[in-house]
Design a protein around this nucleic acid. Structure first.
Lengths: 223, 223
DNA sequence: TAAATTCGATAGTAATACTATTATATTTGC
DNA sequence: GCAAATATAATAGTATTACTATCGAATTTA
């Protein structure tokens, strides 16, 4: 799978970038180092100027790829959700039983990324941490409806709906499949965050994973 | 209850402000209009300069009350959680049966605020919307551990733990009471957001409330 | 009534988030 | 192999943000 993923290009709404960062060496360096720097500094303290210095290039060159850092965040998180969707489909495709399929899906979605493919310029482990810490900021804005209409969140939405469909396959009668799916995906990020920063607000720790919690939660509800 | 709440002063960690905004007329105007303006402009576009103009005062005067807008957000959200905690305790105190008590608690926590006390300078309806849209930004920062140590999130944590305790009273054996409690509180905000901006990702709408969804979720898990 | 506090006004700084221009370097198309 | 097109680096500049500092007038309090 590692090798398959290597050649996979996640297709991202071309309105989030001005010039496709996959199309040049500089573009790839922008992606690579923006992941490292956003992880290191946090999104608020990250600037294109600092990124320019880091990649031995110029602020204005970065602006040729992305309109602003918000669009860059949309690019990175879209890439992450696309990558996760691929993993989800790949891992669950061949499972015939709905229960087992859903169980696997929950596992894929709620686990924290442990290793990156270490070939490409994208470090998935750090990108996962960025999503935990920064994803909400990409939609908790005044522009969310406009950007949603333009399709900036379509990969994420597709992922939630895939999970919803799997829930429905297990129990057609369940009344809240969409809410449950969105709860799992968004909630898993939150539990990972709590584990790191507010351990008293979660039961997840070294021994108990978010996967276990959500598996229990989901199958109790669908029973 | 309305009248009781009027006189209730939510006690907020005094490190979040430089000068207690409750201690002066200007301070109260700062709180009142920052709620209106953050709701209107969103947190990112809100500045102390704009606030100064709105309250017919000066940027530098606002800085005498709050170090920066992040601290102001911490103040507002702490106030909200303190207010909600009061409502929770008030409404559940006299209920003897653990199941009914928890049911009521879920209702209080997951409902959207429908009316404000309309006496004080704080508009709870708008503040609730601010919490839905902005609360995550108060802790998804690089300073979260430091600020957590200084007690900036203690009211919120106390609320989660109260809910956790109620969950435990219903079922002592349940393995994930803290995670479930944090899921309800954070997840309810998320479902309200989805209802407004991503209706395809939730089952909540005019007819189905987050309260119903979470009540079902919780009691299924605790069965 | 003196002292202390509060507030409004003004000024100033460093950083951010861009935009514009130009010269050079590299790629590509013929 | 050369001209044209494109990409990049460097520089400069602007508006806004997020503050800090100072000062004098008004108000409160002791």
């Amino acid at each position: 799978m590692k090798y398959l993923l290597q050649d996979l290009k996640v297709r991202i709404n071309d309105k989030v970038y001005i010039k496709d960062p996959e199309s040049s060496d500089l573009g790839k360096r922008i992606i690579e180092h923006s992941i490292l720097m956003i992880h290191e500094l946090g999104f608020e303290n990250f600037t294109f100027k600092k990124l320019g210095v880091k990649i031995g290039s110029n602020e204005s060159s970065v602006y040729r790829y992305f309109e602003n850092k918000h669009k860059l965040l949309l690019y990175l998180t879209s890439w992450y959700w696309g990558w996760l969707e691929y993993q989800l489909v790949f891992a669950t495709n061949s499972i015939p039983k709905p229960e087992q399929k859903l169980k696997k899906a929950i596992e894929i979605i709620t686990r924290s990324t442990k290793q990156d493919s270490s070939f490409s310029h994208i470090n998935e482990v750090l990108l996962n941490k960025i999503v935990v810490n920064e994803y909400s900021k990409s939609y908790l804005t005044k522009e969310v409806d406009k950007e949603n209409k333009e399709g900036y969140f379509s990969i994420y939405k597709r992922l939630v709906i895939r999970l919803k469909d799997m829930i429905c396959e297990v129990n057609t009668k369940y009344a809240y499949p969409s809410s449950l799916a969105s709860t799992i995906i968004e909630g898993a990020l939150h539990q990972h965050f709590l584990k790191e920063h507010f351990p008293s607000l979660t039961d997840c720790n070294n021994k108990v994973t978010p996967s276990q919690y959500y598996t229990d939660l989901v199958f109790s509800s669908l029973k």
